[in-house]
Design a protein around this nucleic acid. Structure first.
Lengths: 218, 218
DNA sequence: CCAATTCCTGACCGTATGGTCAAGAAGAGA
DNA sequence: TCTCTTCTTGACCATACGGTCAGGAATTGG
């Protein structure tokens, strides 16, 4: 019973429809892959006629590109937790929390991203080569700084980053497998908390963060 | 100039063609996903007419199922390194080595597997619920035994396994991203060695394996 | 040597898909 | 109110796809 008394303005209509279509597309692309997704199915999920999708997004590729780009934005935002941190325990701990939360709240987005990269990034290769490379190099400098300050072991920062990405995104991308191994049930709040705790503990301890800093994380 | 003097027997022909087709299919499914892959493209890669594929594998789904199952076998085999181990350093260390080697040698297979699971395992859900569950529970017992013996910290074995899977498979599934971040070049022998070393060190130290056991790993 | 069986493949078919279009409905702006 | 622009959508189209099939070639087994 949504009260739609006042008719929507054209601008509102456009914004609303684009949002609806993008949400439906993210879901369908995640579940079926780019090749397996059909415009008809996306339209059905969005509750709009197929021709209407093509009014807002000229081609399937264009729609897909928008989906991937919006995911990349979310991804980059989480990465900011890194910046202001004062040391590895705080910085990496917050980063892990943020990425785990994304895996929990936006599993479809994570899957679309994974699928895109697995297929050699046909539509966002330029992003990888520019934004991602810059971001990564910046974080490598931060981590190297921590190493130079003796706040963690001399780990190759790249492999540490890969491990962070892999582990946190695994909970979204392989969520179905995890669910199956959890007797078919999604992880409960407590299980998610335990997952975060385990990941943080293993990694932070593994890179040589002093015990008293770990204790401070609760 | 392969010397094909003696004509192949029917059985050899069948074995050879099935192998060729499965190899081509694995590659194409990995690169394009199930929905994006076409029988025509698989046929081209295999160097056979499309109709010939349908002679050996009745449908696209049947061919795909064979590919996924063969990957699952490789996966299970690597898992045996676990069994005979005498402690976490040796057992998990060997397991990580084995899985990293699979990621390096069979990236396409890993990608197909990842894609299948991401799409909620439409064709191998029964395997997940039987073989994988059994295997996982067995390893959990092994790990729990190590914990009970005080050979490692009391980590939830499930999340440790997820981290192992995620991290090792990441080098295959996200190999393109890693390559991009490596100036577009594949990892060298030395870089692969360093990756293995980093992963093993972080995880084993992270779960509380005593330092002298880590040193023993080189 | 002669069936019987297995293998091979070009041509073909029905369907589903991405995309188009024309004609109308609905706000916007004056 | 009247025009202009934006939005909506059923019907349509060309193509590409998975799959079929008939008929010939090759190998097998007796």
């Amino acid at each position: 019973m949504a009260s739609n008394l006042r008719p929507l303005s054209k601008k509102e209509i456009r914004r609303e429809n684009e949002r609806t279509i993008l949400a439906a597309a993210e879901k369908v692309f995640a579940e079926a892959g780019f090749g397996g997704a059909t415009m008809q199915l996306i339209a059905d999920v969005a509750g709009l006629p197929k021709a209407n999708l093509h009014y807002y997004f000229p081609t399937k590729e264009a729609l897909y590109r928008e989906v991937v780009q919006s995911i990349f934005q979310v991804w980059l935002q989480a990465a900011n937790t890194f910046e202001s941190a004062e040391g590895p325990a705080e910085g990496l701990g917050a980063y892990i929390d943020a990425k785990m939360e994304i895996s929990r709240r936006h599993p479809a987005g994570s899957k679309v991203w994974a699928s895109e990269v697995m297929h050699r990034a046909p539509v966002i290769q330029d992003y990888l080569e520019t934004t991602l490379v810059e971001w990564t190099n910046g974080r490598i400098d931060v981590i190297q700084g921590w190493i130079d300050d003796g706040r963690m072991d001399p780990i190759d920062p790249r492999h540490l980053l890969y491990m962070l990405w892999a582990t946190t995104q695994h909970y979204a991308d392989f969520g179905h497998q995890i669910e199956t191994l959890n007797n078919g049930a999604p992880l409960s709040d407590a299980q998610w908390a335990e997952a975060k705790r385990s990941v943080k503990m293993i990694i932070l301890k593994g890179i040589g963060v002093p015990q008293h800093e770990l204790d401070a994380l609760k």
